[in-house]
Amino acid sequence: METLLDILSWLLLTIGGIFVFIGGLGALRMPDLYTRMHAASVTDSIAPILIFVGIMLQSGLSLASVKLAAILLFLLLTGPTASNALASAALLSGYKADGPAASEEDAGK
């Protein structure tokens, strides 16, 4: 049982790490803001779930697990919210995915 939990948790952590990396790569390589945001969301949602569940399996039933669950809950609440708000802000300001990219001039003034 112990070993099974260990293997499972390592597996989750590794996959979580891979997802984080893929998300980061996507945020860098994707062509425009919305696709980048899409890639970044991977690191904000699936990766924390995997990583935190992985750690929770390690720590067992303890105060730490409760805290981990709380952090996970907050991340899952705030991450997508922030993405949504950012996307709508970009959209409202007239930033188009395929049109002429909103330049720093427009935004920075």
């Binding site: 980061g24 970009a90 427009d106």
Partner: peptide
């Protein structure tokens, strides 16, 4: 490594939204 990639995104821009995205990403990381 992902933080480094996000930082690169923050440096490259090009729009301010990209930078905010990068800040948010580094925050969650």
């Amino acid at each position: 490594v992902t933080m480094a990639l996000a930082l690169l995104r923050a440096l490259l821009g090009p729009s301010v939204y990209d930078r905010v995205l990068a800040v948010n990403m580094i925050g969650t990381k």
